[in-house]
Amino acid sequence: MSLSLEIVTPEGIAWKGENLTMVTLPASGGEVGIMEGHIPLITMLDEGAVLISKASGEEESIAIDRGYARCMGDVVSVLTEAAIDVSKLTDEDIAKAKEMAIKAADAASRTPSIDPDELDRLHALVRFTVAQELAKSKKKG
């Protein structure tokens, strides 16, 4: 039995893999590292990076938004609003996206007639770009 992970977003299954040695999750109470045989766990997640260490020695870093995770029987399921593999992004991409997201959220929060759901969505975008930065820096370090 080896550790496997799936990251599921409203757009579908964002990441799925088996034969992992460790998965690190950005839980709301601090980072949680999960290895084979972990006790069943349900946790809330903050925006941040999911670090995946594969048996082959490779590492991957996935940026995620807030959500929930469940570890049960060596299957880790991450449920989040958005997830992206940061290795496909450059620092400039992320910085640009963050600037745009912050600008949009700022403009929106100054509009009194804005739909609160729309504002939520914009804030989530900002959060998500911060998560991408985090994930990117983790990947380097």
Binding site: S28, I39, L41, M72, G73, V75, S77
Partner: peptide, 22 residues
């Protein structure tokens, strides 16, 4: 659906940060 099936688990869940919060 291509979601993973998980084996039966009879140990009790741990909740983080806490059950109340969740």
């Amino acid at each position: 659906l291509d979601v993973a099936d998980h084996p039966k688990e009879d140990r009790r869940f741990v909740f983080e940060p806490s059950l109340t919060e969740i």
